[in-house]
Amino acid sequence: MRKYLIRRILIIIPVLFGVSIVIFALIHLAPGDPYSSMIDPNFTAEDRRNLLEAIGYYDPLPVKYVKWLGRAIQGDLGYSITYKEPVLSVILRNFKNTVVLSLTALALSVLMAVPIGVISATRKNTIFDYVVTVFSFIGISVPIFFLAMLLIKFLSFDLGLFPISGMQTIGSGYSGFMKFLDFVHHLMLPVIALALVQMAQLMRYTRSSMLEVIMQDYIRTARAKGLKERLVIYKHALRNALIPVVTVICISIGYLMSGAVLTETVFVWPGMGTLVYQSILNRDYPVVVSCALVMAFFILIANLIADILYAFIDPRIKYE
């Protein structure tokens, strides 16, 4: 087991390496450069050459990569071409916002989905179960940006319950507690959108996992022994059913951290998603590569934790 763990952790490094090479190559293959959209006729070709030379644009690709790698290993992720600011600070700023959004959405969806999924499993084929099933199917079938725009139209615009976009009410001069409440107010709609979709998936997964456990022999045995139904469900079945669910949650965290481009764009939430999208359009190479690495890193760690948890729980799985 330990050998497996160490191997998995060590492998993260070459995988990140691989990711960096692929992304680096891809983004530099994209035609255009950071200054190709500048149409000011006063901006001459000579000016453009100067600017591009300053960012090392004319170096051959392997040279560019090696230069970048050399600095990256030392912790210097470079300078954002768009923001003229260290890449690390740009990413940290946006990452913070994504974390708040994702974790809140995740917490909300877990809090709602798991109990509902469990209850649904125990009340299989009742109306409750049916409604939950249909709801969760709809949740995984609806395009999230469509849902987001519907929410904005009905809840924000028509009913005026929530602000339309952004992270705070600008120019309000709030501070302290009021500022926090204002922020929460702005957080709600994006969280609802994300949580609804997540919840759908989680509910189904919990339900099926729970169902699987309930069918097991040892549950039947417990019942046969005469144990109270409640005890059977909550003490035995639930614990075992939840483990696969936990691993799914872990994996979701990994993906959530990579930022939900569509949701963030519709709600103007300055997170990793919007950063990545803008940086690619602007050909801000250092930012794109660093973002990819950060996201890949989180996905890897999350998957690793999920696998570990799963291995702990299911002794049948042998890792060679």
Partner: peptide
């Protein structure tokens, strides 16, 4: 104050 918003929601 210059506020960043997006085209779809700015009108509202």
């Amino acid at each position: 104050i210059l506020v960043k918003t997006n085209r779809d929601t700015a009108q509202a």
